[in-house]
């Protein structure tokens, strides 16, 4: 497979510049479609059901605190701005039978204080793979392939235990620090690794909620922030620049 980084022939017809997030989304789409993944999309205003309930995040459960959510008026309609791209998993599985391989890039919203690496409006990508025999080992392989294709061969990834209600076992994905390459520096707080996304084996309750028999099918899902990756890849110091409408950003690409 060709590395998108090598596709550098300047076209004479290109006059405008693309936003760096669009470049990364195009890269992600390309890398995953070469691995046989479809692209899927879903709405930005979601129902509580798709954003939480169907993903095994019950009402009045502390797990809900993991997502600071914007609710749409009137609140009794229980509509919200999706806090992650995971609802797309559920929507896709409702209409497709396994084997399933999808990625879903999209915009998400969280009621969080903004700083150089957090914004209330941000982009995520979700990947989902379901079949009879998909394993954690496959998850490790796919994430490893993806990150090394996007950010270069020297980029290594690892999984470590974590918790998201819609996966079990659950994991956090770390990649080798882009600043020090794993030796340890201030950016990675001497760890050599930085946290880049969440992952795990899809929880049987999620499969049941879409009518897939978890005794027959299994698979993984993972998701991560596109903004963070874009910042890392291009050295963009402040993610608030993404929504600034400013060509001083765009025209550098």
């Amino acid at each position: 497979m060709k590395n998108p980084e090598n596709d550098t022939e300047e076209s004479n017809t290109q006059k405008g510049h693309l936003h760096p997030l669009s470049l990364i989304i195009a890269d992600i789409g390309k890398i995953f479609s070469e691995m046989g993944f479809d692209i899927a999309k879903g709405p930005e205003i979601e129902t509580e059901y798709y954003n939480f309930d169907a993903l095994n995040v019950p009402k009045d459960h502390p797990a809900r605190d993991m997502w600071d959510t914007f609710w749409i008026k009137p609140q009794k309609d229980r509509k919200l701005l999706r806090a992650h791209t995971s609802p797309v998993q559920v929507r896709y599985m409702e209409t497709h039978k396994p084997p399933i391989r999808i990625v879903a890039p999209g915009k998400c919203y969280r009621h969080e204080a903004t700083d150089a690496t957090h914004d209330a409006e941000f982009y995520q990508i979700e990947a989902l793979m379901i079949d009879k025999d998909i394993t954690m080992g496959n998850l490790i392989w796919i994430t490893g392939e993806f990150f090394s294709k996007l950010l270069g061969k020297e980029t290594k990834t690892r999984l470590r235990p974590s918790y998201f209600p819609f996966v079990e076992p659950g994991a956090e994905i770390d990649m080798t620090c882009f600043k020090c390459g794993g030796k340890g520096c201030t950016t990675c707080k001497q760890a050599g690794w930085i946290e880049i996304g969440g992952a795990g084996m899809v929880h049987p309750n999620v499969l049941l909620s879409v009518g897939i028999n978890p005794n027959e099918y299994q698979g993984f899902a993972f998701g991560f922030g596109i903004g963070r990756l874009t910042q890392i890849k291009y050295g963009i110091n402040d993610n608030r620049l993404f929504h600034s409408g400013d060509l001083r950003l765009t025209n550098q690409f």
Binding site: G16, H17, S22, A120, E121, F242, G245, D246, T250
Partner: peptide
């Protein structure tokens, strides 16, 4: 972009 336009993103809020 072929017509010479460059892309921006703005907030939805």
């Amino acid at each position: 972009i072929n017509l010479g336009y460059s892309e921006v993103y703005n907030y939805a809020f």
